[in-house]
Write a protein that binds this DNA or RNA. Sequence first.
DNA 1: TGTATGACCCTGA
DNA 2: CTCAGGGCCATAC
Length: 122
Amino acid sequence: MAKAPEDAIERIWRVVAAIAPGRVESYGGVARRAGLPRHARLVVMALKAAPEELGLPWHRVVNASGRIGFPAGSASHLLQRRLLEAEGVRFRGAAVVREAGEGDDLDELLWRPRPPPPRRRR
DNA sequence: TGTATGACCCTGA
DNA sequence: CTCAGGGCCATAC
């Protein structure tokens, strides 16, 4: 039953691959775009399982707070941050920063905070 | 079958 | 802003 369908994993990879350079998306956001609400953790899995050969822009995926998922100071964390900054993504403290007062469309395209979630219990 | 473990998320204090 | 608490979901033991 609750096993992760191959499809789901591939759909997640597609979504991630579709994130434009200089932009970021949250784990939950990727999950939603892949048609898998509440599956943020599956996204993590998919990224870990993703073959290097795919060349996925994994670094464009951060958590809902705009911060990098890896432990601060870890090699992966630094790498991700450098890759992002190399694409023009700027940081304020530990979180990615979004320009205030200029790009509201941009904001809508990638940052979109999300309206009320129709959840249900388990 | 049950428990523990995450590159998570959301709300409230 | 940070922290804690509760929830969610697939995987490893």
